[in-house]
Amino acid sequence: MELRVVESTGHHTHVALSGKLDVEGERQIGTEFEQLTAHAGKAAVVDMTEVTYLASLGIRLLFKCAKSLAAQGQKMVVLNPQPMVEETLMTSGTAQFIPIVRSLDEALAILKAE
C-alpha cells in the first residue's frame, strides 16, 4: 500500500492511496494517513482510484479520520473508488459519512459547501 500527497493547500489535503487497504496496508500507511488527514485539521480528498481492495480495518481508518475531521468542522470525501471498493464502502455504511465523488471538482464543491 502506498500513500502520496497530491496537493496540500491552506484549505484541503488531497492524498492518493494505491494497493490493498487490508491489515498489512493499514499497518503500512495508517499513521501517516491520520497525520495527513485527521491531525492536519483541514478538509481531505482521498483518491482511491488505485485501491484494489478494502477490508474492515481500512474502513475503520477512514471512518476514524473522517469523524475526527467532522469534530473539527471539516469534511472528508472519497474520490473515484473502484466498483468493489465502492460496494464495500456502501455496504459498511461508511458512505453515509464520507461522500463518494467522481471528480476533483465535485470533491472540492462538497468540501467548500457550508
Binding site: I59, R60, F63, K67, T88, S92, Q96
Partner: peptide, 24 residues
C-alpha cells in the same frame, strides 16, 4: 450489526468485518 453512528471505528467481536461478510 455495527451502528454506523457510533462504532465503525471500534473493534468488536462480530463487528464490522462479520457484518461485511454477511451482507456481501
Amino acid at each position: 450489526p455495527p451502528d454506523p453512528n457510533r462504532s465503525l471505528d471500534r473493534s468488536e467481536a462480530g463487528g464490522l468485518g462479520i457484518h461485511l461478510v454477511r451482507k456481501l
